[in-house]
Design a protein around this nucleic acid. Structure first.
Lengths: 343, 343
DNA sequence: TTGTATGCGTTATCAT
DNA sequence: ATGATAACGCATACAA
């Protein structure tokens, strides 16, 4: 490794002290114009770059944000892009780690990042995460932490998320309005708030329509495997099969779709389907899949903004909860022809 | 920020020197068992964590790999996952930065990461990148660098990539075999090797079949915008429109598909289509889209492996070129019924 | 305006 | 077996 030029090299060459060089390099303090000029010139020649590591050690700050995400699918990648955007502008670098939906890996990532590598964390929980001691340790060290998307009330920290209950409600209500009467819900792992809230929204809509909540119609399944296909197959083989499915992710919706097609059922006539995330693919499959859209990019940006606010303020902003609104995008998979109108 | 316990704190408390503490903490050198025990005990109590920053400064190594990618779409995210996998196992942390297909941002990212934050780089070029001086600077500093996926001969460094020419050839040959006679190619920006190689494969297949290469059938379009849709529209409005399209990414193929559907053309009868990357969505659209599959996860793993080899070896491994083989997945969009067999 | 000394947290060299 | 000291690269309080 070619040695990088340091302040010492410049000082030695110019026969002045390192402090003077340091001062000349930054536009601060008093330093004779000529001295500054010669320093700047030599620095240029030697292609001097300040050693950030040394600065970090000195300042006890790295200007780096650790981001831990369960995976990098379409929505999450979009959120990360939002974080990136804001961070870059604020002079921060972002370190993205994937927990791969694994609790153990989330812990390892957290530890590694906190080993003085980052100033704080922006995190979204893995599908396995139930205990959050590893995150509490971060807070004990008074490091800023923002939770986004997959949040949990167990962590007292600023959070940015979608109004998941509202989203579940919107999706289900829409299905009800389209005349579906036996609506199933493919939700996520029970330990994830995101699963439960979306499910709650689903139940709220059913109750509101005086429809009974049937536990057989509720399927919890992991994110990291495509259980959705098999779960749907089972659902469709039931004596009284559902006539609509609300899946809390588009991946699950796609899995469901495969099973539905296999059964030669027609969407939206025989069965309705609504997904979640508005993955571009939902618009392209046939039939196109209705989906809940969330402002993922904005969500990421907001998480980063809050993080940076925390960095810049001394007081701990622990009570802050940003909740973004979902939007239902209606496509072919759930849009029944207005038969009633013609009758 | 709660002060982290340091070696000094332990030394002071135990009234011994920092060097002894340092030695006791690692299992090395001679240190009286009792001393070690008391040090370890106190370290435990104070929740002592070595300050990596200080170590990095001392060792001039960060055990961190900088990864720069143009975006985080399905294939690239998969490759990054591969890099992650190997890096984690080897004790390295990964810092992922997105250039967002922007040359300027790629430069900024490179600079930032090289500011003593990472030991080296694993990169895939942005769609805008034509000049590579910023990467040459990395090499001048003798920092390990591996180029993957979107490579360029302008950078003399180990590289891992798909056999893009073979892929283009496979796709096109398949279309020819299916009886298509006027095959268009939606390729990427001219400055990207990936675009050109896939195009070369396309041309090779045409030549082999004694079909003439028509420049009107070749469309270069950016990755970061969905020009594919408009480009296809134009293609389909030509006097002698193509009867098949080879798109060098699934996103482009999807764009093309939209235009084809708009024209009410039937796939695969009126027109054939082959995409690239084997994005899960290709299997779900109707008709499902044939696509080139690449071992993305393996590709990422290999890039990281080479990187780590470079880190561990003194000699510079500059001449190494790993080329992985593509596989054609045939689906409905290009699979014409075997009419010939019935005749 | 400039230089000296000290410290950030750690390890390594050289004494003792 | 342990301690003192220097070093990594930089910034800054203090002295000159």
């Amino acid at each position: 490794m070619e040695r990088q030029a340091t302040i010492k090299d410049i000082a030695r060459a110019l026969k002045i002290s390192t402090s003077t060089v340091s001062r000349a390099l930054r536009n601060t303090y008093d330093v004779k114009p000529e001295t500054r000029k010669s320093v700047l010139k030599l620095a240029e020649q030697l292609n001097y770059q300040p050693n950030q590591l040394a600065l970090h050690l000195l300042k006890k700050q790295t200007h780096t944000i650790g981001v831990i995400v369960p995976n990098l699918d379409y929505v999450i990648a979009t959120m990360v892009k939002g974080i990136d955007e804001v961070a870059l502008e604020a002079g921060y670098t972002v370190m993205v780690c994937q927990s791969n939906e694994s609790y153990g890996r989330e812990i390892v990532n957290t530890k590694r990042l906190m080993d003085s590598l980052v100033d704080g964390l922006i995190v979204s929980l893995s599908g396995e995460t139930a205990a959050v001691d590893h995150f509490k340790k971060v807070q004990e060290k008074k490091k800023p932490m923002v939770v986004f998307d997959r949040v949990t009330p167990d962590i007292i920290a600023p959070s940015v998320r979608l109004d998941n209950e509202e989203a579940g409600y919107l999706a289900t209500k829409h299905l009800i309005e389209q005349g579906y009467t036996k609506i199933a819900c493919l939700t996520g792992p029970k330990n994830l708030n995101i699963s439960n809230k979306r499910l709650e929204g689903y139940m709220k809509a059913l109750k509101e329509a005086d429809m009974k909540i049937d536990q057989d119609m509720i399927v919890y399944c992991d994110f990291n495997q495509d259980y959705a296909y098999f779960a749907t197959k089972e659902l469709l083989n039931m004596k009284r099969r559902p006539d609509a499915i609300f899946a809390i992710s588009d991946k699950k919706a796609m899995g469901a779709m495969l099973a539905i097609k296999e059964k030669k059922l027609n969407m939206p006539n025989d069965i309705g389907l609504v997904g979640f995330n508005n993955d571009p693919a939902t618009a392209l499959v046939t039939p196109s899949i209705s989906s809940i859209e969330m402002p993922a990019f904005e969500l990421g940006k907001m998480a980063a903004k809050i993080f940076i606010e925390m960095m810049n303020s001394e007081t701990n902003i622990t009570v802050r909860e940003e909740v973004l609104k979902p939007r239902l995008i209606i496509r072919e998979s759930s849009q029944r022809l207005p038969l009633a109108g013609k009758a």
